[in-house]
């Protein structure tokens, strides 16, 4: 009985791998975009630009305080009513990038704020401009604080990407949904889905742990 299902499942493996590729594409692209935007927002949030800071803060609160599923539904099903039509893939990437940016923004700004104030004063005093202060003095020190939780956040976001299956993106999760209708052995099908996510996330979990150890250990003043 199980043997047949297992065989059927193996036959659909290419289908799952296609789904895996889609998951990797959506999350990879979103993490890239989300990291870039998140760093930008985080830098602003740790700065003294009051209005911009407040705007970003409010946006981050809204996004962190609402379910991702609802956000992606609004983007995909509600926006067309206002004349904004998005395909499932770009909608998924935009929604997930935004989510990523919001979480990463918080990690980055608290990382920057963890750098002692005297560091910025020293950099200011030696005549470095704002960009040079950030690039050579503040960010290199902040990165030690930022990197471990950042990689940990990547893991969470990759798993959150499964939500994009709800708008029809053919990712691993959706591949599971479709397959389970042919192969009624849910434990097998979603076991495989879980395994595929785990295969991507586990190395990242390891990296995050290693970073934490290494950056935490190395000496600081």
């Amino acid at each position: 009985m199980w043997g047949i299902y297992l065989e059927q499942l193996l036959q659909s493996l290419p289908f799952f791998l296609k789904g895996l590729w889609m998951t990797v594409a959506v999350s990879g692209l979103s993490l890239l975009l989300g990291t870039a935007v998140g760093f930008l927002w985080g830098i602003v949030r740790a700065s003294r630009r009051r209005i911009l800071k407040a705007l970003i803060g409010a946006w981050v609160d809204v996004i962190r305080g609402t379910p991702f599923l609802v956000q992606i539904f609004i983007l995909f099903f509600i926006l067309p009513e206002f004349g904004v039509h998005l395909e499932a893939f770009p909608a998924a990437v935009i929604a997930l990038s935004n989510l990523a940016a919001c979480f990463i923004c918080e990690i980055v700004s608290s990382g920057i704020e963890s750098v002692p104030h005297g560091q910025r004063e020293a950099a200011v005093s030696s005549g470095l401009n704002g960009y040079q202060q950030l690039r050579h003095v503040i960010l290199p020190q902040a990165l030690r604080v930022i990197l471990p939780p950042l990689v940990g956040q990547y893991v969470l976001l990759i798993k959150d990407s499964s939500v994009v299956s709800a708008i029809g993106v053919m990712d691993v999760t959706r591949a599971g949904w479709l397959t389970v209708q042919r192969i009624p052995q849910g434990i097998l099908v979603f076991g495989l889905v879980g395994l595929l996510y785990f295969a991507i996330c586990y190395p990242l979990i390891q990296i995050s742990g290693a970073l934490e150890k290494r950056l935490g250990r190395s000496s600081r003043r």
């Binding site: 004063e121 005093s125 003043r221």
Partner: peptide, 15 residues
């Protein structure tokens, strides 16, 4: 500022 050296109580060297 480039013409003024400033030395802090806590050194503030870049670690």
């Amino acid at each position: 500022r480039a013409e003024i050296g400033f030395v802090f109580q806590q050194f503030n060297l870049y670690p």
